[in-house]
């Protein structure tokens, strides 16, 4: 069956909350009810039919033709199906996502995958700061699922991450994996200053090294890790090039010793 398609009529005049346009909420709805779904974030009422031209189809396969950095909360809380966006999205894409697949062809804003517990979020462009991180007042960030960013990630990617995997094929900003509790963050490109800042547990892989490592990480030498082969097998489906690299020997740094020091950073054998 063909996909349910939302075609952007014009750049919206206000930020939009697109959380309601997910398979969980649209399954079984008529075109009229979908068109009447409210998306506004200001006092000015704005419905899906005002913003998009709608072509009915399978609500488990949703496609947005055209994106905007004003598309906030896209795929938020989704648990099934697939949403693909042919463009950029705004804040908190895939926030609290529980399952299914969310694919963004452009860039994504901050707090993408925030509090995510399952499913897959794929971003072809760059992503803003605090990828997978918690919002203010929350104690835990991403708790499951897989995030793949083909471009760069902003500061504090994987902040307070608890479970799951984040793969960044580009560069990552400062403090990648800050305050990590567990889970895995892999950065293919250069990582900014002080990765793993105050991480307690978890794994950060900086395949191209970082701009500066905290002195509160202890060097435990270069080793061949069976775990990294298992990680490579898992990563293979998402990023084959990174999977090949993971199978090599890597230097392991233990930390952050400023907290309990049970986390680890894998970095190139010759640190630079």
């Amino acid at each position: 069956m063909r996909a349910l398609v939302f075609t952007l009529r014009a750049v919206p005049a206000q930020r939009l909350d697109l959380a309601p346009l997910k398979p969980d909420q649209l399954l079984g709805l008529s075109e009229g009810k979908i068109a009447a779904t409210e998306l506004q974030t200001t006092r000015e009422r704005l419905c899906a039919g005002d913003v998009f031209k709608i072509r009915m189809g399978d609500a488990t396969q949703i496609r947005f033709d055209g994106g905007s950095e004003r598309f906030d909360h896209i795929g938020a809380g989704m648990s099934q199906g697939e949403i693909s966006i042919d463009g950029d999205v705004g804040n908190q894409a895939g926030r609290l996502m529980r399952g299914g697949r969310l694919a963004v062809a452009g860039n994504a804003g901050p707090w993408a995958a925030s509090g995510m517990t399952g499913g897959t979020l794929a971003i072809s462009g760059h992503v803003g700061e605090r990828l997978g991180g918690p919002l203010s007042g929350e104690t835990v960030g991403m708790r499951g699922g897989v995030v793949v960013v083909r471009g760069d990630a902003g500061a504090r990617a994987g902040d307070r991450m608890r479970r799951g995997m984040i793969i960044v094929e580009g560069k990552a900003g400062i403090h990648a994996g800050s305050r990590m509790i567990a889970g895995t963050l892999i950065v293919r490109g250069r990582t900014g200053r002080l990765p793993g800042y105050l991480m307690s547990r978890g794994t950060i892989v900086t395949l191209d090294g970082s701009d500066a490592l905290s002195p509160t990480f202890a060097d435990s030498g270069v080793h061949e890790f069976v775990t990294n082969i298992l990680m490579a097998s898992y990563v293979q489906a998402y990023s084959p090039e990174i999977a090949v690299m993971l199978r090599r020997p890597w230097r392991r740094l233990l930390g952050d010793m400023a907290v309990i020091g049970k986390g680890e950073i894998f970095c190139p054998p010759v640190t630079n």
């Binding site: 895995t184 794994t203 890790f225 775990t227 990680m231």
Partner: peptide
């Protein structure tokens, strides 16, 4: 360490893990 639905334990030993 959890990859997908598989959970592993890594125990440090004298020749590695």
């Amino acid at each position: 360490k959890r990859f997908g639905d598989k959970r592993y334990w890594r125990v440090p030993v004298m020749d590695g893990e």
